[in-house]
Amino acid sequence: MNFNKNYFEIFDLPVDYAVDLKLLDDRFLDLQKQVHPDRFAAGTDHEKRLAMQWATLVNTANETLRASLPRAIYLLGLRGVELETNPTLPPGFLMEQIDLREQLESIEEGDGNLEELDSFRRKMQQEINEVQAEFKEALDEDIDKAERLVYQLQFLSKLMTSANRLEEKLLDY
């Protein structure tokens, strides 16, 4: 056992885009129960240091695998693909993004209609699901395509975050 295991191996899960979240959760808790620094509060300094390193690693691995976008990026990383910070995207996709962003702005300006926002978010979620499904297939067949799809997912997830923020604002949280 060493710190060089990949995040899937840490939880003894298959290296795959589809992750059994319930199983991940179970194994995450089982691992933390063994390695958390609180288990070594009365231990030696070296034990405390090791526990701290392990608990940190297990937390990072869990967060990476739990959410679909970080998991996708991590899987690309395992295949040696490093993401670009300013990728080129298909013009059609970019146009669509600008259009979606404008829709969101008009919801905000137009007195902030919650129902409109809800249907906007549902539409977004549907698109995210579709791109995710494409990514899952592309990962094993066409790594370049998988990379392009992750850039799209990044855009979509940013937009989703903006939509969620707007909802918070409208609900005055």
Partner: peptide, 19 residues
């Protein structure tokens, strides 16, 4: 320092046990 190796072994065993 003398017990560091043992501590590492224990931690590995704990991780194996968890899984």
């Amino acid at each position: 320092r003398a017990s560091e190796e043992f501590a590492s072994l224990r931690m590995d065993a704990a991780v194996r046990k968890a899984l």
